[in-house]
Design a protein around this nucleic acid. Structure first.
Length: 162
DNA sequence: GCCAACGTTGGC
DNA sequence: GCCAACGTTGGC
């Protein structure tokens, strides 16, 4: 941990994957705000729990789609808190190891910011030199919540207008 | 639908 | 603690 150094309070940027058949940017736009439940990967959980702050920028990525790509922008609008779907036996995200007393899984709330007028496809991202080291483009990268740099975030936004 | 890459599980 | 087997992710 740093000691109040520069960057401690800086806004961070993320990419969050969602399968549009399950929950799309249009769904988020309609609802305005949504709890990002169902994350069952420790690395992704730790990002939410330890590093996400309200106000952080989010690239909303449509995965498992034809084609995949960034569909719009969202914003983190809560701190991490326990994911109740983990202790609901009827939920597809049920995990009996998690209890209200000792939650294993957490989520944040995310609010809609902008639906892009067109999808910025994975192909386009891959063709942008400034995005060469973007995590989501790495082969075999399955992590559903990924940090992105401010530069990458802004570059994706810039692609919308081009 | 295929399958490579990855994370998790569980036997030992 | 190792690692093979398995289930899942997700691009293609």
């Amino acid at each position: 941990m740093s000691f109040g150094g520069e960057g401690e309070d800086a806004m961070r940027y993320w990419l969050m994957k969602s399968e549009p058949d399950v929950f799309s940017i249009q769904d988020l736009e309609r609802k305005g705000r949504e709890p990002w439940d169902g994350v069952r990967n420790y690395q992704a959980r730790n990002f939410m729990r330890d590093d996400m702050r309200p106000g952080d920028g989010v690239l909303f990525y449509h995965s498992n789609a034809k084609p995949p790509g960034v569909a719009g922008l969202a914003r983190v609008c809560s701190e991490a808190y326990p994911d109740p779907t983990a202790w609901d036996p009827k939920s597809p995200y049920y995990d009996p190891r998690s209890t209200p007393e000792r939650p294993v899984w957490v989520m944040v709330d995310v609010e809609h910011v902008r639906t892009f007028p067109r999808l910025i496809t994975r192909e386009e991202l891959a063709a942008a030199p400034a995005l060469a080291s973007m995590m989501v483009l790495r082969r075999g990268m399955r992590l559903s919540i990924q940090p992105v740099t401010q530069r990458e975030f802004e570059e994706v936004c810039a692609l919308v207008g081009s």
